[in-house]
Design a protein around this nucleic acid. Structure first.
Lengths: 195, 195, 195, 195
DNA sequence: CATGAATGAGAATTCATTCAT
DNA sequence: AATGAATGAATTCTCATTCAT
């Protein structure tokens, strides 16, 4: 089982990126000022501009790093099976464990819509998260495990269900760890889409 | 069937609110400037400050108006049936029709997280959208139509599936009208949760 | 003895002028807004612009009215005697009675430096108040009642002493009515300047 | 004899404070804009906001600095004698020399009524100037040098006379240096209040 | 005469970025 | 590499004034 925890930020660059991620999640990109990031990271204005070209570049590098780490987890945990049912369970488990262990990371994944950073206006979920689901469906259909419904609908059900529960937990709407819900959720999804 | 279309903004206040909604969706709250709103609404700075106390108050009033209108639709279309299956179909249809007829309204519902406006940091969907789903589940369980699973999970599946498909369409990830998907989606959800 | 009390403002123009005087004294000219004056006078924006050309014109007319009323009191109470000692007593009494009966009127006299209204930057006291004192000194010297000192010095002592005590009372630095101090003050001034 | 001249403002903060003092005296607090201060001080908007929290804070710090410097002069020149007659002469000389050497400093002392800056609405003179005079009177009465009159009246005569002559000079109503008037003024005041 | 919605020039303030040390 | 004082473009908001009703 992959270690999902983040290594504690030791160097200046990582301290800045980590502080920026938390602030972007808590306050949003625009309301977060460079001095905010400086204060939260215990560094200096000069250090920020030494490591990044500016606020936008900092956001872009943060975004790429988060995506890369997320896709790494997905590759290691989800897309290595050739079976749709176990992949759905693995994807659910990955997302729920991440939510419990790294809530800021997940909140960033769910909500960051960095217009200044990427030309479109999509969250990581709408873009990379969807690729994961599409791949699972492709495998499942090829294996004859999954009903022959519209792909948009299947995608929406799988990723929507998982992300929505993560969202409710990250927003503190619902209490309690999600770990116990991995099996119930995976089973419910499977009820809907299995042959 | 309720008329979901917005009446064309005729007075200054509504023209400002309408322009603000579109700009908040397209650019986000912070990057939208008062001059942007003035230009888009064909009014004047003074008019904005005559009708609203400031940008924040404008956002707050917009938020309340959108919520009120949405809850009005929900009350008229969804929460008047005593049957979970038809309520789910009605909810799906409402959201899909709104997406086609008033895409900005729906994008606002899905993504506006106005920290400055409400003390928490939730989208309309996370809050009001959840109430709708909870109510449907309550009815369905009382009627013995729905399996006895964790409420968070059922909620997540129903609202997550619907919202996710709306989201993909609003983000132009998937092309084509959602109207044809009302029945397939409602049926898929129903496969998952029916006794 | 002249009646120093202001007749209650009955018509719109006077209500506006009276409200403006109080607000100019309490908040200052610039921080006082037209809506402030409208609220305090119970009139309307339109009424203000009907009776005055604008804020500056309102201030100018107020200034002229205050000066005219003050000079009327001075003419009736102070400058009708041919004797310096009684004139000084009369001037002292006039200022002290005004301070008790119309504190806003006196505060306006003492502190209003309406740069926008008159081209120089003097209070009514520095201009009109000084003319009064100069005239008293002229009479006193002609009568041989007053020592032959520098006129600036004599002026400063007479008007400075009176105005300073009024000032302290108007600013609420010292408590208690000034009426009982009329004789002591006039006598002290006289000790300094009599032959 | 204390050096009353101001050292030329060398650092940015002092250049800003000095420019602000002159502008507040010449135009008043409200009509003075931040760009005015920037232009007059040869600095930048950013520099103003780097050194002060805002226009109000700038005014507050200026006020405190002027008071502190004034009270320093008073302590060194006036309140070190144990004799009322010489203290009055010293106070007169201090004020008249300041008027000649630092007219803006004195105009600020006399007229700045910074409502936004101190909770009451008094000039430095009404407050700190009064303490000086009260102390002189206390000494004089203890020594049996001064007549037993109402303290408000004695205060008013001493500080009123001095301030008024300074005022007339600062307002350019009277021409010519005040230095030659130190003895005549001190003697006239003394005639009024000595036993 | 009276009203107050609408206007926009001008003010204070913020904050990303630069650069001398 | 690191620092933080200095810069000024861009933003929000105020308020005197106009004018249709």
């Amino acid at each position: 089982m992959t270690d999902l925890t983040a290594s504690p930020a030791i160097n200046v660059r990582d301290r800045i990126l980590d502080a920026a991620m938390r602030l972007f999640v808590d306050k949003g990109y625009h309301p977060t000022t460079i001095p905010d990031i400086v204060k939260a990271s215990g560094t200096s204005i000069g250090a920020v501009y030494h490591h990044f070209e500016g606020k936008e570049d900092l956001a872009r590098q943060l975004h790429q790093q988060v995506i890369a780490e997320f896709m790494g987890f997905v590759g290691a945990e989800v897309l290595n099976g050739s079976n749709a049912e176990t992949s759905i369970r693995a994807y659910t488990e990955l997302m729920f464990r991440l939510t419990e262990e790294r809530p800021y990371f997940v909140s960033y994944l769910l909500h960051a819509r960095p217009r200044a950073v990427v030309d479109d206006n999509l969250t990581v979920c709408s873009r990379e998260g969807l690729e994961v689901t599409s791949e699972i469906i492709r495998i499942g259909k090829a294996n004859g495990e999954i009903i022959d419904a519209d792909e948009r609908v299947l995608c929406g059900l799988i990723s929507g269900t998982i992300m929505r529960i993560v969202d409710m937990r990250a927003d503190h709407i619902v209490p309690g760890s999600l770990i116990a819900l991995v099996d119930p959720v995976a089973e419910l999804i499977w009820r809907a889409i299995r042959i």
